[in-house]
Amino acid sequence: MEVKDALIQYCLRLGDDAMIMGHRLSELCSNGPILEEDIAMTNISLDLFGQTRIIYTYAAELEGKGRSEDDLAYLRPEHEFQCALLTEQPNGHFGNTMARQMIFSVFYYHLFKELSKSPDESLAAFAAKSLKETTYHMRHACEWVVRLGDGTEESKWKIQDALNDIWSYHHELFEKDEVDEKLIDMGIITDTATIADDFYASVNEVIERATLGTPAGGWKATGGRSGRHSEYLGHILSVFQSLPRAYPDAKW
């Protein structure tokens, strides 16, 4: 695999994660438990779509086939998306949303810290910008996990269940294939193994403050990076891509 091809794939994965996570959060508009949270979730969604645009634009540039950010977002079929299954999972209740967000944001916080040191200037700049946003997303989600964990009896079992359910989906974020190996070899990205300790330390600290139990092992979700998704992604894309698909000649 050429370095350039690996980098294109890697950027698409970053973009796909951000886009599908952003989409899930955008579904929550006008559904928050309080208005302030409605604003917070829309805001995180907005940041993630901002990240999507930057990294898709870079991927398209590297590719050099004249595709745009919108071509990548709207005209790729399901199996060409490489997002982690975590991002596709439904919002559920507020606890499910926050547990999912915590895992996503804690992982990306540590990853972006590393990527911001990449010798690839565009990737580093993207990571540095995203790191600022992700730091806020992470704090927001972690504080909610703590509040729910150490809140009422009901909120405690709800967030504990949510955490147990979503835990199966965190492993995939650390997976590596030839795309990652190539870029690690070339020193362009950091091996996710090096951030694993930090990830678990951050999550465990939150779990402890939240007076919750560590989620158990069990099944490990996988497949997103090779285009094998959960059933949810097809539904997400059928909505997301509906207008450009229905009116291919239209400019919006």
């Binding site: 907005l46 779509f49 999507t52 898709y56 709207y74 509906s242």
Partner: peptide, 18 residues
Amino acid sequence: ITRAPSLRAKVVLLAKIQ
């Protein structure tokens, strides 16, 4: 929001609703 026809349109709409 979930059907905005371009990423730019989506971001603009999200910001507006916010």
